[in-house]
């Protein structure tokens, strides 16, 4: 059988079958607590303040561009996934969320480029093919390269995001940030 799951691949299921799958997924999903344990107001302060999340992440149009937009993350990911993404961002590089219209899924791979004149850029891959590379650097400048004109380029699955340990974000504050993501995601 030709498989499902690749770009442009439709599964060819009927409406009835699609709903059966959805019902199954819903039956096994981890249920989020009705009331998030944390303080969403404080979480927002941390997000845009001392936790510095907004340096790289955007929510509802406000924040940085280097990492994934987190406006819908709270509704799309489990709490465990969110905590892991903050504590160990390289364990599972973030994948594009709610991007059904995009043909490619952005994985936020880290890339280091050295141009022919020796200029070095560090940033995140926006897209690439065998011949070209589109990236955004840590200063949010976009660069569009032809790979064969570069002195070097190297991708890494080590996330540019720092791993937030207890010193950077304790469990209580983590709960507050997640409460904020859940509150935004529910809107």
């Amino acid at each position: 059988m030709p498989p499902n799951g690749a770009t442009q691949q439709g599964v060819g299921m009927t409406e009835e079958e699609i709903w059966q799958v959805i019902s199954y997924i819903r039956s096994v999903q981890v249920k989020a607590p009705a009331q998030p344990a944390g303080n969403a107001v404080h979480g927002k302060e941390l997000f845009y303040g001392s936790a510095a999340c907004s340096m790289c992440h955007m929510i509802q149009g406000k924040g940085g561009r280097l990492g994934p937009d987190l406006s819908t993350t709270g509704s799309a990911r489990s709490t465990e996934y969110l905590v892991e993404s903050v504590r160990s961002p390289s364990r599972r590089l973030a994948q594009g969320i709610s991007e059904a219209m995009k043909e490619f899924s952005q994985e936020y791979e880290t890339v280091t480029v050295v141009t022919a004149d020796g200029t070095k850029f560090l940033g995140v891959v926006l897209n690439e093919d065998h011949f070209t590379l589109q990236m955004i650097d840590t200063r949010e400048q976009m660069h569009l390269f032809e790979k064969d004109k570069l002195r070097s380029w190297e991708k890494s699955r080590e996330s540019l995001m720092p791993a937030y340990d207890q010193k950077m974000l304790n469990d209580k504050d983590m709960q507050d940030v997640i409460a904020y993501l859940l509150a935004v995601g529910a809107q």
Binding site: M1, P2, P3, N4, Q8, Q9, G10, V11, G12, T14
Partner: peptide, 9 residues
């Protein structure tokens, strides 16, 4: 309307 190609039309 009810054809069932598994993997695309």
């Amino acid at each position: 309307a009810d054809i069932r190609p598994c993997c695309g039309r």
